[in-house]
C-alpha cells in the first residue's frame, strides 16, 4: 500500500503532460481555423469538461483530443504502477543475496525470498550469488616459458605446475565494496602464495607432498584475502599436474625406466629367495621326518632306507656282478645292444 503513494503523486504529473501535448495540437487547429481571441477560454472550458468526464465521451467528433488525454492518463498510471511493481519487488534466489543501495548508499542485504524495496531510481538491488563455485585455472603459458608454468623450488629446480582454485563469494557486501577487481586479486594471491609455498620445498617434496601444498596454499590465500576483506571463500586448491619441465623430460623418463628395471630385478630376487627358502624348508622337513623314524629304530630305518634306495637304483640299471678275484662275469644280463634291438619289435 505504501508503494502507491509515489504512484499517485506521479499520476498528477501525468495528465499535465498529456493535456500539454493536446494543447499544442489545439493551437495548431486554432491557427488554421479561427484566429480569434475568444477561442482559448472556450476551448479551456471544453477541455475541463472533458477531463471531468474522464474522457468517456460519445459527445461527437469534436472531442477527440480530451478523450485521448484521458486515455493517456490511464496508460501512464498503468505504466507507473507497473514500473513500481516491477522495480520494488525482488525475488532473491536460494543461493543469492541482494545488496540494496539507496542512491548509491548501502542500505541492507536481502536474504532469499521475495523482498520489497523502494522503486528503481531510489533503490538498486544487486544480486550476488554466494553459493556458486567459481573455478580459476592457473596453468600453462600465461606468458612465454614454452607454455609451461615453471616455478622455482628450494633446491633451484623448476617444476611445471598447473592448478585450479575453487572459490565462492562469502560476503556479498565485502565482495562488492572492498576490491576493485576481486577475481584478479584471487588469481594474484593464489599465484603468489603457490610460488611461496613451492619455494620452501624441494622438487621431490613438491612431487610427493601435493596434498599438503594444496591445503597450505588454500589456507594462506584465504588468510590474505581475509586481510583484504575480500568477502571471498577459498574452497580449495587442486594441483592438476606437477611435473618436470619438458626440457628434462627424457632424463626424467630415464629415472622412471631405471626404477622399473630395479623393481623387476628386486621382484626376481624375491622370487628366488622364496624359492630357496621353500626348498630348504621342504628338504629339512623331509629329513626331520626320516630322522624321527631313524631315532625310533636306528638300525632298521637305516637298512630300510638303504634297501629301498638300492632297489630303485638297481631296478632301473643294468647290473653286472663280478668276482673281484678272477674277474669273470658271474652272471651276464642282456647287454644294452639287444635291449635296443628289441625295441622296434614292440
Amino acid at each position: 500500500m505504501r508503494d502507491e503513494v509515489p504512484g499517485t503523486v506521479l499520476n498528477e504529473g501525468g495528465p499535465w503532460g498529456g493535456s500539454g501535448g493536446s494543447d499544442g495540437e489545439d493551437r495548431k487547429k486554432r491557427g488554421q481555423a479561427r484566429p480569434g481571441a475568444a477561442g482559448p477560454s472556450a476551448l479551456d472550458a471544453l477541455l475541463r469538461r472533458g477531463r471531468a468526464r474522464f474522457g468517456g465521451g460519445g459527445d461527437g467528433d469534436g472531442f477527440e483530443v480530451p478523450r485521448l488525454g484521458g486515455l493517456w492518463r490511464w496508460v501512464l498510471l498503468a505504466l507507473v504502477v507497473l514500473w513500481i511493481g516491477l522495480t520494488s519487488t525482488h525475488t532473491i534466489g536460494a543461493h543469492e543475496r541482494g545488496v540494496v543501495t539507496r542512491f548509491g548508499k548501502y542500505i541492507a542485504t536481502l536474504d532469499p525470498g521475495t523482498r520489497w524495496t523502494l522503486p528503481a531510481p531510489i533503490d538498486t538491488v544487486t544480486k550476488v550469488d554466494v553459493d556458486k563455485t567459481e573455478y580459476l585455472d592457473i596453468a600453462a603459458g600465461g606468458d612465454g616459458q614454452s607454455g609451461e608454468n615453471l616455478i622455482l623450488t628450494r633446491d633451484q629446480n623448476l617444476i611445471n605446475l598447473a592448478y585450479s582454485v575453487r572459490w565462492s563469494r562469502r560476503d556479498a557486501e565485502q565482495y562488492m565494496f572492498e576490491l576493485q577487481n576481486p577475481e584478479e586479486t584471487i588469481r594474484e594471491v593464489a599465484e603468489s602464495v603457490m610460488r611461496d609455498v613451492v619455494a620452501r620445498q624441494t622438487f621431490d617434496q613438491v612431487m610427493t607432498g601435493q596434498k599438503q601444498i594444496q591445503q597450505e596454499v588454500a589456507e594462506r590465500a584465504q588468510d590474505l584475502l581475509d586481510s583484504y576483506h575480500a568477502g571471498v571463500l577459498i574452497q580449495g586448491v587442486t594441483i592438476k599436474t606437477a611435473k618436470a619441465p619438458d626440457a628434462v623430460a627424457s632424463a626424467v623418463s630415464d629415472v622412471v625406466v631405471a626404477r622399473q628395471k630395479v623393481q623387476a630385478s628386486i621382484q626376481a630376487a624375491q622370487n628366488y629367495a622364496s624359492q630357496i627358502t621353500v626348498k630348504a624348508q621342504r628338504e629339512a622337513a623331509q629329513f626331520d621326518g626320516f630322522y624321527i623314524q631313524y631315532k625310533a629304530a636306528p638300525e632298521v630305518t637305516r637298512r630300510r632306507l638303504y634297501y629301498e634306495t638300492m632297489e630303485r637304483v638297481l631296478a632301473k640299471s643294468d647290473k653286472v656282478i663280478v668276482e673281484p678275484r678272477n674277474v669273470v662275469p658271474y652272471m651276464v644280463p642282456p647287454p644294452a645292444a639287444p635291449a635296443a634291438t628289441q625295441e622296434p619289435a614292440k
Partner: peptide, 19 residues
C-alpha cells in the same frame, strides 16, 4: 644313477662285487 622317472631304463650299467 638315473632312477628318476624321466630317465630311460638301462642308462647306467653297474658292476657289483659279490662282496
Amino acid at each position: 644313477f638315473g632312477t628318476s622317472d624321466n630317465q630311460r631304463r638301462g642308462a647306467t650299467t653297474i658292476l657289483l662285487s659279490p662282496d
